[in-house]
Design a protein around this nucleic acid. Structure first.
Lengths: 336, 336
DNA sequence: CACAGAATTGCACACGTTAACAATGCTCTT
DNA sequence: AAGAGCATTGTTAACGTGTGCAATTCTGTG
């Protein structure tokens, strides 16, 4: 039951534990025959190295941290899923992927270079800033995904939210819409800001008037989209199209519209942002912006690993293009 | 930059590193004043213990493994999300949560008692069996969630799938349906079996005839539900209700139905299983069975931690009740 | 004052691994 | 045949922490 160590193997092979260590690590110093013999013994004893001991002497934890702003409400399931999938695809077999919510920490005490070989922050909010600064200051290899970081020097991979929102709004205008409402994301999130900016930029460019009444605050969850849409429907002069700042809220918005006996897109057009897994299967299928979370995660993880191994630093921010996915939730208005 | 150890603190405090170790671990042996002094110094130096060293001597890794059958296709986002959320809520601050797909391992070599203080397997398929047996044999504290394990002695927390499927089918029958189709889950999954069994059991109990044509194979993803539904719609004598073995497939089914110009539930009733986050916001809102993944994960994690700390073993299987969630996707057929 | 016993601290080793350096034996060259 | 140099293996220390046991100091009691 008690686990076998290299010393046990050494005893059986009649060599020193050093030789065993070298043999198992494929050191060229060891005679091929001895090496084979030792490996055979190790195999038959089902030897597995003690990672704690190895970590201690090599000063590597074999842990990679994947941190989200929160694992409570606020992080969508698809988001978590794609991020984990992307990172997991890339990390070598030898790394452990540790998942945590930043807001789970009372203190960042336990976060240090000994415990994490590297850290990936999937940042959704400015509230992550202290954590990012802490990790950066501790000298832990660090990459921040999804949210643009300005003050601190870190590796950064982000989607181009603003151009995505611009493209979407432009598309609605091109389909003849002029009264275009926006259901906004959670306050304080950078993405909320960027998407609003893209929306406004498009309105400006095409000389479409913006009115405050056309903006409803949401917080990125289903219910808030439902509630915000109801407020918009109560307006004396309703919009003809609604740009929801994510797909969850679009789902809620469609629900609100349908409940009033109206139809999407015949009576009202609805678009989203994110391209969640379910969006293609909504009724109607949702026109939205795809934000390549999985690809970004994969790229970010690869970049982090490369840095850990080479210590070659690149601080430039990488932008990932979003993509307009046209489906069935927008009506083309004749004349314009 | 090089990290501070208890020896550094010892030097500054003018004591031995033993005393520092004891002080920081709140040993009653140490004079309260010395203790305070040492803690103050540790705090001012921002000391953080080296977990590798501690692990080595204490023979604890502080790692908890959360294993899914796969992180590639087959695990739904909501499933992953709820499981992580539930476990994360419970684990003490001192544990790392390591997430992996079992099918990522070429060999289970790295999985041992030194690397994991405990393992939670969120099992979705019989293909997990070798892994479970391996972990059990290695003597790693182990709990299996979601799938019932028969041959191996392990802690087990599972939903009562069969009674859930039974309840759902019974409900459809009570609403007057007699031609009830089933879109089945992925072959080889125990859940597929249990849900079919519950479905058949209800048919038998209420003397409703079953025909093979009413069964369409799926594999738990959206597309397969879409395809299976199309096959059912091609039948000369269509069903009046379809029991989809999960919500993703129900979403696909609704899509297929709508595309043919038919309406749910007016022309065809559709129900699901799992109660995903989006199900309440589909059009129409989906009637489904809630499987309490998050609660099960929470209970399982708590049970595992209790075992790790007390070594008090309980091998009985815990069943979690599912719940029928009635929404708007079923039509009541008059007369029956 | 002496001494028992408690309170407090230190010494030395252990955990399992890696690696610098030393040591041994062998081969080849001259 | 002697020495250089290579191939192979062993000796020893180190990583940072926890702990059994010995050592010291302190307290109280007779």
């Amino acid at each position: 039951m008690s686990s076998v160590t290299i010393k046990d193997i050494a005893k059986l092979a009649g060599v020193s534990h050093t030789t065993v260590s070298r043999a198992l690590n494929d050191s060229p110093l060891i005679n091929p025959e001895t090496k084979e013999r030792i490996k055979a013994i190790a195999g038959s004893l089902q030897y597995t190295p003690n990672y704690s001991a190895r970590s201690l002497v090599l000063d590597r934890s074999y842990n990679l941290g994947l941190f989200f702003s929160t694992l409570r409400t606020g992080t969508s399931a698809g988001f978590l899923y794609e991020a984990i999938k992307g990172v997991n695809d890339v990390i070598k077999d030898e790394y452990n992927l540790i998942v945590r919510g930043i807001d789970d920490y009372k203190s960042f005490h336990q976060v240090n270079r000994k415990s994490f070989d590297g850290i990936i922050v999937m940042s959704q909010s400015a509230s992550d800033q202290p954590f990012i600064e802490y990790a950066a200051e501790k000298g832990i290899p660090l990459i921040v995904l999804n949210r643009e970081i300005e003050d601190v020097q870190v590796m950064n991979v982000v989607p181009d939210d603003q151009s995505g929102a611009f493209r979407m709004t432009e598309y609605l205008i091109q389909q003849g819409h002029r009264r275009i409402a926006i259901i906004e994301g959670k306050e304080g999130f950078k993405s909320t800001q960027s998407r609003r900016d893209g929306y406004l930029e498009a309105l400006r460019k095409y000389h479409v008037a913006f009115s405050e009444a056309m903006s409803a605050q949401g917080n990125y969850d289903l219910e808030s989209g439902y509630a915000a849409m109801n407020r918009l429907l109560d307006l004396p002069e309703r919009p003809t199209a609604v740009f929801c700042c994510n797909d969850d809220m679009a789902l809620g918005a469609v629900k609100a519209i349908t409940e009033r006996g109206l139809k999407v897109p015949d009576d009202l057009s609805v678009v989203g942002f994110d391209d969640q897994l379910f969006s293609a299967f909504m009724t109607p299928a949702l026109t939205t912006i795809r934000r390549p979370i999985e690809e970004m995660s994969r790229a970010g993880a690869a970049k982090l690993l490369a840095f850990i191994e080479s210590k070659q630093l690149e601080h430039e921010t990488v932008y990932f293009h979003t993509e307009l996915v046209i489906r069935d939730s927008v009506k083309t208005i004749a004349g314009g």
